[in-house]
Amino acid sequence: MRTAAPGALLMLIMAQPNMATGMMPYYRHAWTLAPLLITAIFAAYLFALTPALSLVGTPPTRRAWWWRIGVGSGFGIVADLAMAVADSPEPVVVARICAGLSVGLVTGSLAGLILERTGERGRTAMAVATVLGSALGTLAAAVVAEYLPAPGVTVYLGHAVLLGVIAMAVVSDRAVRPAAIADPTSATAAAAESRITGYLSGIAAWVSAGLVVALLPSYGAELLGTTNLALLALPVTLYLVSAWLAQRLIAPNRLAAEPVSAQWIIIAGVALAAAMAWTPSLALLLCGGVVAGSGQGIAYRAGLRIVSAATPPDQHARAAARFAGVAYACAAITTVGLGAVATVASMRDAVLAAAAVLILVAVATAVVRRRAMAHAADSVPVPQIPTIA
């Protein structure tokens, strides 16, 4: 239980900001929200998250984890309550800000705790908890909103209670457990990569997540002509579940040039979703979500492993927080930009713009990685062969 509790708490913390995703078509219709306002609501979370990660979310020592976990969980509960009483966009923005503070406060501390208790495999566990929590939050909110009474209340109150119980369990157990033995081969492979490659991989992962979470439900509603929330949440849910499954089924470094390969998988998925503008099809949209999600899971894991591989154990929490902060900030800026494109032009143009941004990031990653590998090769000393005069 003490090994699983930090991961369960991270999953619940990540579920909270994603519950609004499954209900966004409902909110859009009820409050007549333009695409730009939808992305601004989504980005409010990221703009609160980034400074929280940078200023107070990077714990210097293990002793600093606990108040961050407690306060961050408290902000998550406040976010739930604000969403439960929301009847206009204003309380939603407040809830999104609280959710950003919640995730920003706990990410680094829970990362350190998970790595302390599970060792090297904790890097994958963190990535899994992040995407699985996002998927469950999206799907649960959509199902409750579509099929149960009080759609904007029930799911948030239930989440608040569960979050409080798990947070108390985590904070009450502060005993130090001996670190598990790391896999030296896997750690060495990740450490050979440039950290810039890791950051670019994380940026690509979360830019695609911003596109899928903020715009894909409305994109599907517009092209498919449906208002069924559970159906519209399905592409997002498949995206997130595919990200989780890819991390579980594909071992680290199994793909050649993993950070770059993962990004091109994301781009292929976005291209499938973009093609739906010319051939409206739910199957095409779902396939796009599955393919893009698979790439997102691998890209996020690869980036996190690269950035934190060479970090001393007592700095894992700070490294994870910095990585998340950079990725989330870039996702926030890009998502707002895509919302502006969707408002001024069309949803189709926004998806195409996202594909163009992701292609640029993938090319930059390939260039940085090639230069880093060439520099590493040049740095290897060449053995001198003795000669006899």
Rank of each mutant, 00 (worst) to 15 (best):
T118M: 04
G112H: 05
A345T: 12
A299F: 13
H375N: 13
Q263F: 07
V207E: 13
Q263M: 15
L223D: 13
A256Y: 10
L10R: 05
L284N: 06
A180H: 12
R305L: 11
R28A: 15
T387V: 14
Y27N: 03
I333E: 02
T118Y: 06
A127E: 12
E90K: 02
H375Y: 06
S281Q: 12
I298V: 15
A354N: 02
A179Y: 00
L229F: 10
P60Y: 01
L113K: 04
V71L: 15
L136Y: 02
V93T: 06
V326S: 04
I77F: 13
P235W: 05
I69H: 01
Q16E: 15
R318V: 12
Q315S: 07
A52Y: 09
V344P: 05
L46M: 14
E116T: 04
I250K: 06
F47D: 11
Q296L: 09
T334E: 12
S186W: 01
A233M: 09
Y219L: 01
A125R: 12
A277H: 08
L163G: 04
Y199P: 04
L157A: 02
S88L: 01
E222F: 11
I77G: 10
C330N: 09
A366W: 08
V92G: 11
I13Q: 03
C98F: 13
G133F: 08
P25I: 02
D87R: 13
V241K: 00
I166E: 01
Y156E: 07
C287F: 13
G289V: 06
R96H: 06
M19V: 00
I196E: 00
S218I: 04
W206H: 15
V170F: 07
A189D: 09
A82S: 14
P6S: 06
H375T: 11
D314W: 05
V143Q: 05
G137I: 03
S218Y: 12
G119Q: 04
L10D: 11
A376L: 05
A175P: 02
M168K: 00
I13Y: 04
L360R: 03
R371W: 12
I388M: 13
A40T: 14
A377C: 07
L304S: 14
R2K: 10
R121F: 08
I97S: 02
A230G: 00
V170Q: 03
V171R: 03
V307I: 04
E116A: 09
E193T: 01
D80K: 00
I13D: 03
S201V: 05
A179F: 00
L304D: 12
I388T: 14
R123A: 08
A182E: 15
V78E: 12
A64S: 15
H316C: 03
T185W: 07
L139C: 02
T61D: 11
S261N: 11
V85T: 11
T138Y: 07
G100L: 11
T226Y: 09
H316D: 14
Y26P: 00
I359Y: 01
V128P: 11
T58Y: 01
G112S: 06
G57V: 09
A309Q: 07
S102C: 15
W66N: 04
